[in-house]
């Protein structure tokens, strides 16, 4: 929501950005170029993937937005459309694909399952939302979102791209690149390496609770 506030007219423009006309014009050009050629990864998980294909087909024709080029390889893709239920068995592959995508990259959680687990949230093999592992830019509710709803969501993504600035985007910053997301491990249940300590202490607490 922060991004939306930033573009409100009453938002104070910081001093260092004032008079930066060149940058804003350049930003506009830069963003226009990027927003008009968002190439999605050819990557379908479940039911929503069929609606994604339908959105590519003649009736909805995502080519009108420059999004018709579905790349089967993550190296050439800008957008990961997580279209369907994210299962624990699949999520290591998804994180790997995400890590292989070059910056700037965006992630759209299409449908209830990818946003927050959806109707299958209670299942033992389901990750309750891809945002537990990958930063999500746009959430599209619906089960499944109709192709028109998907396009509406992608327009929201374009609006988000429009608000980005060359000065602030992290992929031109100096220093180490954005951290790769550690790939989860399939253990007795899904292990997110970032949460190892937490899991260990909770499992230990479980044992003391049991013995008490």
């Amino acid at each position: 929501m922060d991004n939306e506030k930033l573009s409100l007219p009453q938002y104070d423009i910081p001093d260092d950005v004032q008079n930066a006309v060149a940058i804003t014009t350049l930003d506009r050009l830069y963003n226009w170029g990027r927003r008009s050629s968002v190439w999605p990864l050819m990557f379908g998980l479940a039911c929503c993937a069929i609606e994604m294909i339908a959105a590519q087909a003649a009736r909805y024709d995502m080519a009108r937005f420059g999004m018709e080029v579905m790349r089967p390889t993550p190296r050439q893709a800008d957008l990961m459309l997580v279209s369907g239920t994210v299962t624990k068995k699949m999520v290591p592959s998804i994180v790997r694909l995400w890590n292989q995508m070059p910056e700037p990259k965006y992630c759209v959680a299409m449908g209830a399952c990818a946003s927050g687990g959806g109707p299958f949230k209670e299942g033992y093999n389901v990750v309750a939302g891809i945002d537990k592992l990958i930063p999500v830019d746009v959430y599209i509710p619906g089960c499944p979102p109709t192709p028109q709803a998907l396009i509406a969501g992608l327009i929201k993504l374009q609006q988000k791209i429009d608000k980005q600035s060359l000065r602030k985007v992290h992929w031109y910053r100096k220093g180490p690149d954005v951290m790769e997301i550690p790939v989860p491990i399939l253990g007795p249940d899904l292990i997110d390496p970032r949460r190892n300590a937490e899991i260990k202490s909770a499992a230990a607490a479980l044992a003391t609770k049991e013995s008490a």
């Binding site: 990750v127 253990g187 190892n196 260990k200 909770a202 499992a203 230990a204 479980l206």
Partner: peptide
């Protein structure tokens, strides 16, 4: 959930030793 997610581990589980 004790693990604050859709997770279930055996007692005294140590992910680093897995």
């Amino acid at each position: 959930n004790p693990f604050k997610d859709n997770l279930k581990f055996p007692q005294d589980f140590d992910p680093e030793k897995w």
